[in-house]
Simulated assay, not measured.
Amino acid sequence: MDVKTYWQHFKAHHPEITTDHYDAYAFGSSDATADLLAHLVKIGQKTATTSGVELYEADEPFPFVGEYNIILDAQGNPVCVTQTKVTETVPFDQVSQEHAYHEGEDDRTLSTWRKEHRAFFTREYQVAEQTFNDQIPCFCEVFEVVR
């Protein structure tokens, strides 16, 4: 099912939702990661994510509390709908153990989160011709699955 049809089907089962605004995206930088993270979201293990603030395009809006998101697998198929519950911007080295746990990946510890995200952000910042450091501003988002 394509994203637009998935959204219309979702709204038909949730008449209280009156907005047509949603974002649709896959997590990660590889097909395997996108599929794994979509699965973790769907089963409720992954309820948070982190982005590099400086990696957003100038005209790209930040997620906002109340926003709906359609999580996609590696092939662009909708897996589930989430709703953003909390957003905050903090330096990389101040991301909390709680947030790392809610990201739902690996052993869910802060030390593993920092190791994996440091590697991920280093690559992403290089692609953007920027330099990663432990004080980069991170956009932390908490969400819940609503379908």
Rank of each mutant, 00 (worst) to 15 (best):
A24M: 01
D23E: 15
A128D: 08
H99I: 06
L110R: 11
G104M: 00
A26I: 07
F10K: 05
H13G: 11
V65T: 12
T122P: 11
E54S: 12
T47F: 07
Q83T: 07
K115C: 04
Y6S: 00
F120G: 03
T109H: 10
S96E: 01
Q126L: 07
P91C: 12
D106A: 14
E60T: 10
R147Y: 10
T89H: 05
E88M: 10
Y25P: 05
I71H: 03
L36R: 11
D31G: 15
I17S: 02
Q97T: 11
K115N: 11
V127N: 06
T84Q: 06
Y68V: 04
E129D: 11
D106K: 07
T5G: 12
W7A: 04
A34R: 11
V65G: 09
D93G: 00
N69L: 07
D93A: 09
V142R: 12
M1P: 07
T84E: 02
L55A: 10
D59L: 09
W7M: 04
L37W: 09
V145L: 05
N69E: 13
E124G: 03
Q94E: 15
L37S: 01
P137L: 05
D106T: 09
V146Q: 04
F64V: 09
A34S: 13
V65E: 12
A58Q: 09
E54R: 08
Q126W: 06
K42G: 00
D107K: 08
F27N: 00
V90A: 00
T87V: 14
E57P: 00
D35T: 09
V81N: 05
E129W: 14
E67K: 14
Q8I: 14
H39R: 07
E98V: 12
P78K: 12
E98F: 03
G28Q: 04
V81P: 01
L40F: 07
E57K: 15
R108S: 09
V127A: 13
C80T: 13
E57M: 10
T49M: 13
T49C: 05
P137E: 06
Q45S: 11
I136Y: 02
H13R: 15
M1W: 09
I70L: 02
A32K: 13
T18W: 07
E103M: 04
Q8G: 04
T50V: 13
Q45R: 11
H9I: 02
L110E: 02
G76N: 05
L37Y: 04
A12L: 13
A128N: 08
V90Q: 01
V142I: 15
P78T: 10
T109L: 08
D134Y: 06
T109D: 06
P63H: 09
G66C: 04
F143G: 06
N69V: 10
T5E: 14
P78Y: 14
V41I: 02
T84P: 08
Y6F: 13
E129L: 11
A119I: 12
T5Q: 14
Q83W: 12
D106E: 12
T89V: 12
Q75R: 15
H9M: 06
D2Q: 10
Y56M: 06
Y68H: 13
S111D: 13
I136C: 00
L40P: 05
D35L: 08
